[in-house]
Computed example of a mutant assay.
Amino acid sequence: MNRFARRALLALAALAPLATPAAAQQFPGRTITVIVPFAAGGPTDTVARLVAESMGRDLGQTIVVENAGGAGGTIGSQRVASARPDGYTLLLHHIGMATTPSLYRRLAYDPVGGFEPVGLITEVPMTLVAKKDFPANTLAEAVAVIRRDRDTLNYANAGIGAASHLCGLLLMKAVDAPMTTVPFRGTGPAIQEILTGRIDLMCDQTTNTTEQINSGALKVFSVTTEARIPALPNVPTSAEAGLPAFQVSVWHGLYAPKGTPAAVTQRLSQALQVALRDPKLVARFADLGTVPVPQAQATPEAHRAFWMADIAKWKPIIQAAGQYAD
């Protein structure tokens, strides 16, 4: 390489750091895609569509939500991890981001190092629900039925690693009675099977069950949080109903591919924080039994700290269960 070529390369290298802020200042200049790694109609999909609508208004661009379900959320996650790190392809995922590193021993992408956290969104309670004609009306009665009929009952989930799967693990451990599990490509399809009566039981997030519970389409036994929730004031907590070990909630967060410029990630985080203050979004979340996280948690830094702590929390639980997705 001659000296003129070397000088040209050095000049380009000197200009490279200047290019990133300029690109970030112009961001976003086109439509953004948010990948939900689960089927349409599920609770994470619901959260994503509400957040995308509000964020899009602040960013001045359309945000399209695209479902890429399958393999416990890893198919959609891999797609984002391998996307161009420019802020135009994002991932909205739930607690599965904390359990995937332990559930999967072999993945085609790095489930931690492949992403830049943008901010937390909400922490959603779970509900234990059943088909309308399930032969129990309280959690205590349901536990008795599960223990008695464990060999004939079926429990739905959205695949290994899904929130419904994790909740089911805790339930079966708490009642000391394994059930036949039936995986689906998302909780939306699973709920439909419960509504038809072909599935007996399931844990699902309030964002996906509250309306069905209030309409009487689903039977509910408990919410899996420490306190009752306003959207379902007459539904007892698991602890109240005699099963204190059965507690879990599902948090959601927004991610960009690793290497996304910090200025772009911060702009997305800013838009997320604006969205979480949107009265329309807050009201809709309340209808679904949840609330936005405090503003301080909707930042990349707080999101990362929370995420790492939850990875450490779930690792021993998953290892004790001995159930891996691969």
Rank of each mutant, 00 (worst) to 15 (best):
A309G: 05
L276Q: 09
A162H: 05
L288G: 03
A144T: 07
S54Y: 08
K313L: 06
L170S: 09
S54D: 12
P135S: 07
L50T: 05
P183D: 06
K131A: 12
P300W: 14
T181I: 11
L12D: 01
D151F: 05
K219H: 06
Q273V: 00
L128C: 11
D326Y: 07
Y104A: 10
H94F: 05
L268R: 15
L59W: 15
A39I: 00
W314R: 01
V220N: 13
T74M: 12
V51R: 11
R57Q: 15
F27N: 09
M1Y: 05
Q212A: 15
E116T: 13
A144Q: 10
A174Y: 04
G29V: 00
G69W: 09
S215L: 14
V118T: 13
P316D: 09
Q297Y: 13
A140Q: 14
S54M: 05
L170P: 00
R284T: 09
R147T: 08
K315V: 00
S249G: 12
L15A: 14
Y109Q: 01
T260K: 11
A140P: 00
A275K: 05
A241V: 10
T225L: 03
Q295V: 11
L153N: 04
V282G: 02
Q192V: 01
K131Q: 14
K258E: 10
Q212L: 15
I311D: 02
R228N: 04
N2G: 15
A231D: 04
D287N: 10
Q273S: 14
A130F: 12
K313T: 07
V47I: 13
L153V: 06
A302P: 05
G159D: 09
T31G: 00
R304L: 14
S82P: 02
A81K: 01
T209C: 06
F221D: 11
G289K: 09
F4W: 11
S249H: 13
I146M: 15
Y324M: 09
I311Y: 06
P43G: 14
S222G: 12
K315R: 15
P125T: 06
K258S: 15
Q273E: 05
L201K: 08
Q205N: 15
D45A: 00
L12G: 02
N2V: 02
F38A: 11
Q319A: 14
A108H: 02
D133M: 01
A239G: 06
N137I: 02
Y155A: 01
W307S: 01
Y109M: 02
S102C: 06
E240S: 12
Q192H: 14
A83S: 14
L218Q: 13
T196H: 06
T187Y: 04
T89Y: 04
A174G: 03
D151Y: 03
L50R: 15
A5C: 13
M172Y: 01
D151I: 00
P135D: 03
L15P: 05
V220I: 07
A177T: 08
K315W: 05
S82C: 03
W251T: 08
I194L: 15
